[in-house]
Structures are given as structure tokens and as C-alpha cells.
Design a binder for these strands. Structure first.
Lengths: 239, 239
DNA sequence: CGCTGCATTGAAGGCGGTCAAACTGCGTGG
DNA sequence: CCACGCAGTTTGACCGCCTTCAATGCAGCG
């Protein structure tokens, strides 16, 4: 059931079968969320953390004037709120952008892991710092890249992350967000997002139809994005 | 010596004197860095993590066209690269923006802590997820706030963080960055940063002279920033 | 068949970028 | 001591990207 999470970990370190069993036994109570439902609400104090198994979810904050900024996109195999285990309280919400299937890990079990499983603890810690690395990459993209490059960079990142957990085909992946949601990721207006998307389409690096992204020219996309997957830390080593 | 780090932890949980002693014994080899020196270089594989004791440092990345984006600002009491303990390799550089005094914690010692000190491990983990929370707040500011609000937000955050570690006076703090460096924080051009700063000065919420920020109207600044310190997680609880 | 949510396009205006020049404070060397 | 240079700050002008407002197109669905 939690294969994508295991894949995420195994892309970065060796995980023993004992550790896998431990995780399996701990991550339970599968549940589904509909589009626009909150997986986790801002301001709450979760007593469990949520693993996304399938679908796309977003961390977000809404400002006083109603503007929304998405701070992270999550796909199958991601813990959407593991950081709430040390943090205790959610400083943002997590919403389902597509139908989502999830499972839960009680914080009491996570705590036990920190007491008896140092290596697994470091792996969980690793997952949260990879989140941080992605945040930093987004900051760089927002601050210093052109909008076209930023958008291309996002698609590169998503494609690579989806491939790791086996949820991307050769050069394409399901992506049923609205352009308005994508605009909230980039911090753009809907109108301008649409025009920026038009630039990528015009250069034939990418198509987006039937809720599916098809990358037609990976090298071109990567060049536009100046994409360097290094920050995703996709190499196995002893952590 | 590492008082500011302890202060950072004690603002968020009870730390036993035994744990403090452990940290004291582990964080050693004090060193100084001059302005513009790299505390940590991008692409390296550090075998120790760096605690900033005094001064201001920045995590940054430089793009191909030479543009720089600062992704985090660090002050006394911050680990500037604790995330490199699970991550192993630096995906960005860390530079001294003022003269910096630091000390080091060997990764081998950190690893031993994960094996024998679950509570201290969770505290260290906490520090890295607070970094993540700050990253998210920056993403929100970059994407959806006005530049004036973003700048005000940054000063609010810095003031609160500096107060926690005892490095801010009543309503003022030492801040000897250049405007060009601040522009790299906000993702703005130098010229426009200067004009945005002018807006805050004109509203008399803030002065910046002799390398010192003086907040003249905290409520006004906070209102402009829509600043909510919640994300800094400054409340003691059992982690 | 018409409704509804989403995508697309156009037009107008302002924010923020780049280029350029002047100004300030400070340290240094003649 | 003063002139100079340098680094950083400030201001102005121009232009283009991005926002907002508005209208139209389009596809799925009750």
C-alpha cells in the first residue's frame, strides 16, 4: 500500500525489510479525499501525519485579501505534514487538488521510532529536509527566474518526482489541476499564467490536454528551466 | 558560548541541563569568517554542521546569468547547515554578510545523538523544520504580498528572531547588510528595493541608519506586513 | 439545450526592471 | 590636510512585464 513512500526512501538510502515492515504496520487507516477537501486544516494540532498515496495535494496559505499562495505540491509517496510531528501545530492548510488516497501514521508511533529506530528516524528527518530543499528551489525560481523558466522548472521537477514513485509514463503524467491553481503555485495571475503556458506550447516543449502533461522536448524544457535535479537528493547513500 | 542556540531551543521546549552539557561538549572549534567569505560552499559534503554564534549569514544560489537569490538569512543561534546532516551534500552556499563567529558540530557526534538521545534528536529535527516554515512564509511573501509588505514582513521576522536570542534592543537591531544584498533576499532589483524602502521610511514605521534598523512603529510595521509570528513556533511544548 | 466552470484573448494601466547619473560617507595615499 | 577613489545610496527616465477588467470560446453535464 505504501509502496510510493518506500520508493521515495529507497531512492535515497537502503531501507531494510524490517524497517519497511515497521512502516507498513504503522501507516494505516486508508482514506479518500475529494477535490477541494482539506487533508489537514491550518491551525490544527494533528496527532497523526498523513502520507499521500495517490493524487495531488497542495500546502497553501490564504492572505487577508483572499489571495492564495501554494507553498508545496505533493504527489503519491509524500508525507504532506510530517513536519507537524516536531512542529505540533499546522501553520498552513493542505488541500486535495485531485481526488486523493491517503493513509495515516500516529505521532505516538513516530515518537516510538525516534526512540528505538535511529536510522529510520534519520530517513524521516531526511524527507522533511528534502521538502525544505524544494522550498528553497521554489524561492530561487520565484525571485530570480523568468516566469517562463519558473513554469518549465516546475514541470521538470514534477516529472522527475513522479518518475521516482512510478507515477509518470515516458514523458507524460496525469495533471488535472486548473490553471488557476497553477497560478497560485507560481504567484501569478490566472491570465498571465495562461499566456506563459502559451509560450511553452509555442516552443513545442510541452503539451497539456486531457488533464495530462506531455513533455515533447525534455532537453528544451530543461534548458528553459535551467533545471538541475540535484536538490531532490535522488542518490542512495547511508544517511 | 552556544547560548543563542540554547535560547533558540528553549524558546520551543524544555531542554535539560544534561542535554545542554551534551551540546556544549559537542559544538566546538570556534572560528571567525570575514564579510563575503563562504561559511559553506555549494556542492561540498560537509562532515560537520555550523552553528552561527554572532553575525548574519545567508544561504544563496547563483543562476547562470549571475543573478543571486538568497533563500534564508541566519542570525546567532541558527544552525546554518544542519539539513546537510541528513542531506549529505550542500545544494547551496552559505555566505557571511557581516563578520561571523561560528562553531562546529561533527556529523559523527550528531549521528551518535540520533542513536542515544531521542529528545535531543527531535529538537534538532525541529530546528530544521522551523527553517522550512520560514521558507514557506518567504514563498507566500514573494508570491502574494506587495513588495512593501514583503519587506516589512522580513523586518518583523528578523526583529522577533533576534529578540529570541537576545540580539535585539527595544525596537532596534544591528543590520549592516547592503541594499543590494537585501534586494537578493526579496528577489528585487537594487533600484526598486531602494524605492520600496523609501515607502516604509515615508510612513515613519522604520529607520535605517548607522547600520542599525530602528522600528519606530511596530504596530504599523506589523499591519503593513500582515505579520503573524505563529510560523516561528515560539512556544514551549514537549516535542 | 442551456448552465457552469474553465480556458483564452484583448485592452488599459501600473509596478518593477534596466540604464544612467549624481550624491554621500569614508578610508587612503600623496 | 586634502584630494581622490570607492562602495553604497538615491533619484530620474524609459520601457516592458504582469495585473485587472472584460468579453468570448469551449466542453462536460444535468
Amino acid at each position: 500500500m505504501i509502496e510510493p513512500l518506500i520508493a521515495n526512501m529507497q531512492a535515497r538510502d537502503v531501507v531494510s525489510s524490517r524497517e519497511i515492515d515497521l512502516l507498513q504496520s504503522m501507516i494505516v487507516r486508508e482514506r479518500r479525499f475529494a477535490v477541494d477537501e482539506d487533508l489537514v486544516k491550518e491551525g490544527t494540532r494533528p496527532i497523526f501525519s498523513t502520507v499521500l498515496l495517490d493524487g495531488i495535494a497542495a500546502r497553501y496559505r490564504v492572505l487577508e485579501d483572499g489571495k492564495r499562495q501554494i507553498t508545496a505540491l505533493h504527489i503519491g509517496g509524500d508525507f504532506v505534514d510530517l513536519h507537524a510531528f516536531p512542529l505540533k501545530e499546522m501553520d498552513h492548510g493542505v488541500v486535495a487538488l485531485t481526488p486523493c488516497r491517503v493513509a495515516f501514521a500516529d505521532h505516538s508511533d513516530l515518537r516510538r521510532i525516534t526512540e528505538t529506530e535511529p536510522h529510520l528516524t534519520r530517513l524521516l528527518w531526511l524527507l522533511t529536509v528534502v521538502d525544505g530543499a524544494i522550498h528553497r528551489e521554489w524561492i530561487v525560481a520565484m525571485g530570480r527566474r523568468s516566469k517562463k523558466s519558473h513554469l518549465a522548472h516546475l514541470f521538470c521537477e514534477l516529472y522527475i518526482r513522479l518518475k521516482v514513485v512510478g507515477k509518470a509514463e515516458k514523458g507524460s503524467f496525469a495533471f488535472s489541476l486548473t490553471q488557476s491553481e497553477l497560478a497560485d503555485v507560481l504567484g501569478l495571475s490566472l491570465v498571465h499564467l495562461n499566456k506563459t503556458l502559451g509560450l511553452l506550447r509555442k516552443e513545442s516543449v510541452l503539451e497539456w490536454a486531457q488533464r495530462t502533461i506531455t513533455i515533447m522536448d525534455w532537453d528544451g524544457l530543461q534548458r528553459i528551466a535551467e533545471f538541475e535535479p540535484h536538490y531532490l537528493n535522488l542518490h542512495v547513500e547511508a544517511r
